[in-house]
Each structure stands twice: as structure tokens, then as C-alpha cells.
Write a protein that binds this DNA or RNA. Structure first.
Lengths: 197, 197
DNA sequence: ACTTCATGTGTGCAGCGTAAACATTTTCTT
DNA sequence: AAGAAAATGTTTACGCTGCACACATGAAGT
């Protein structure tokens, strides 16, 4: 019984990496992005100020991990409560509502996920999770509206249309750019025009 | 001739405020948002590190002024090359193309304009310029697609649809979230589905 | 047992925003 | 014209930040 795998707490702290991510995530939403610092994360977890360096090469690496985690959860939100047998219209509805719900539940993280110079956009893990989200978006975009051109181009336009619409809606919503009175009883589904005659 | 208004250079520097904004804007696009500092702006202009404090209460105030300026230019981009006599379809086309062009020309500034905690969203000047942009968006949103509900609600949904779509498209485009091959010869106008039967 | 490596601490440094005291120049008031 | 007041700029200082570096410690492998 020399290498049992029952207790995965390897040593000093436990698993500091995930603890730092959790603390960073909480600080991000509570204090705002510009008040998030590695030192505050370290202090929240109870380690020295330089301990995070053992798990993240720099601050950008931590933010990238945070964004990667965010895309994973966004994917989960979009797939929530959808049975495999559901038709595309049902999946589409659930995915759109889930997408917006994630942004509303994690506005600061959502903004970070689309920031241009705070996360390293070429990170493989990040790209993988982004790709997983895009698979769902591509699926629900099929048979959506009428676009001109040949087949592949039509698919691309449909996907760009759906992603642009839901992303823009989510961002403008969480950035409070919509008038409150316009939002009464309105969801992302109401903002999609009737596409067929 | 004691108070002639011919030379508006008041004294020491000239007009440091605008010079700082110009420097900040250049640094923002070249160095990226996370490498923009007041001290670098001051150095670029050739004044001491604390001189900006006389013109901007804090860094957020400078970024807010930058965003305000951005919305002014976005408004100008949307109105470019449009005669007053043009019909709504022509204005819509020009405004959408102008909107996206501004985002492409000023990606870092565009991101700043929609950031949640770096600009003070309640600034009156900012709100005024945001409102001016929204007036154009509301105008081009009329008679767009088919939405259910009574009159005012339909207008609101149309506006939210158009702004969500063009903002999402602009942001995803500048964040390189679209596949390059999908973008070949595609503009914002191609991503809007045929809304009528 | 000894080495090796992963992980955590302590120290130090340059850059940052910004507060405070002071200097200088313009503008206002008389 | 003269002095007061305001606007603008500099210097200094302080605490916070990311991070490089040397070192300590505990776990794992041989």
C-alpha cells in the first residue's frame, strides 16, 4: 500500500493551483478586473506573495487559465437541460439562453474571455475549450435564416450571425448598455427576428 | 489688445490635456491596454510623471475621456459618406460598415469603450456620445425584421437586435474569433440574414 | 540514505497610481 | 501697473504591483 491514490493532497498546501484560481475568480467578480492582483489571491489563500509563481509563469497565465475554465463552463451552460434526442430548435433555444445566463452569472469573467491582450489567445487549452463552444454554436446555427452563396459559405455566415448576435447581446446586457425598460420580460429569444415568411 | 484670443496656447506646455489623450491613444493601440500607464503618457509628451494629475483626476478619468472620444469618432464613422437625402436602407448600410470599420481601425479603443470597470460609465460626456451613437442605431433599426408585440416594444427589440449583431460582429472580428477562411470577401452586410420572405 | 524535484518563503527591484508640498506662469481684480 | 488668485508643472514620497532570484522545506525516487 505504498502508492494508494485515495488522498490526492500531495503536500504543502493541498492543491494551491485550483485554490488560486478559485480565489482569483471570486476577486475578479467582487473587486473587478482592475483590482485583481496575484498578491491578493495569494493572501486570500494564505500563502506567500510569490507562491503563485510556482503554478503560473505570470499573471497572464493565471488569467488565461481563468478564461479557459470560463469557456468550459460556458460550454456546460449551453448544454444544460438538453437531452440528446431534442431537436435542433430545442437545443438552439437552450443553448442561447444558457449562453446569456453564463454571461449574466459571470460578467467580469465573460469580459476577460473576450479581452484582447490579457489572455494569451494562442493557449492550446483555451483554444480547445473555445472550439468546443463553437461546435455547439455551429450546430444550432444550421437552418437559420436565409443567406446567399454556396453551401460552406452559407454555414459560415449562419455561424457568424448567431455568434455575433448572442455575444453582442450578452456583452451589451452585462455592460448595461440596454435601457432597463426595454429589457422587461425580454430574453435573447425575443431579440431574434422572425426569419421566415 | 489685452485679451486677444488669437493664440490659444495658454502657457507651459501648450494644451497638455489633448496631447496626453493623443499619446494615450497611440500607446493603447501599439502597446496594448495592459501596458498603458500614465507615466508613459507623460514621458511621451515630455512632462513630469505627475503632470497628468492636473488634467485628469485619476487614470480612470483619462480612460473615460478616451472612450468618450471614441464614441464621438464611432458616430462620425457611422455617418460618413451619407447624404441627408439617402433612404434608410442606404444609411443603414453605411452605418453598419462604418461601425465595423471603426472597430477595425481602433480595436483596443473599441474594447475599452465597452469595458465594465475601466471607464466610469456614468460620465455625462460619455453618456452623451453613447446616446448619439444609439440615435443612429435606432434610426437604421426601423423596419428591420419582424418582431412580435406592440409598437414601442417592437422598436426596442429591433434596436437590441441590430446593436447586438453589429457589436458582436465587430468584437469577434477584432478579437480574431472568426476563422480567416470564413471572412474572405464577407462583410457585416453578409452576416445579416434575409429577413423578409 | 541519498539525491532530486516540486513546492513554498524571503528579499529585492523597477514600475505603477497618486497624494502632498512647492514652484512657476498666466489670468483676474483693482 | 500691482498684487491676488488660479492654473499648471515639478519634486518628493508612499504603498502596491509583478516578478527575478536565492534559499528553505517536504515529498518522491533510486
Amino acid at each position: 500500500m505504498k502508492s494508494e491514490t485515495k488522498d490526492p493532497k500531495p503536500y504543502h498546501h493541498g492543491n494551491l493551483k485550483q485554490a488560486l484560481l478559485d480565489a482569483a475568480r471570486r476577486l475578479l467578480e467582487t473587486e473587478g478586473h482592475s483590482n485583481l492582483s496575484l498578491r491578493k489571491c495569494a493572501e486570500a489563500v494564505g500563502v506567500s506573495a510569490t507562491a503563485p509563481q510556482n503554478h503560473f509563469a505570470n499573471k497572464a497565465a493565471l488569467l488565461t487559465a481563468l478564461a479557459t475554465q470560463g469557456y468550459g463552463e460556458l460550454h456546460a451552460y449551453m448544454g444544460r437541460g438538453v437531452s440528446d434526442a431534442a431537436d435542433r430548435a430545442a437545443r438552439r433555444q437552450a443553448a442561447l439562453l444558457g449562453y446569456v445566463a453564463f454571461a449574466q452569472d459571470n460578467p467580469a469573467l465573460y469580459e476577460l474571455m473576450f479581452s484582447r491582450d490579457r489572455v494569451s489567445a494562442s493557449d492550446p487549452d483555451l483554444l480547445r475549450n473555445v472550439g468546443a463552444c463553437f461546435v455547439i454554436l455551429a450546430d444550432i446555427s444550421k437552418e437559420f435564416g436565409r443567406f446567399e452563396g454556396e453551401g460552406a459559405k452559407v454555414d459560415a455566415k449562419q455561424q457568424m450571425f448567431v455568434w455575433s448576435l448572442v455575444h453582442g447581446y450578452a456583452q451589451l446586457l452585462t455592460a448595461n448598455r440596454f435601457k432597463k425598460e426595454d429589457m422587461q420580460g425580454v430574453s435573447i429569444l425575443d431579440v431574434i427576428p422572425d426569419l421566415h415568411s
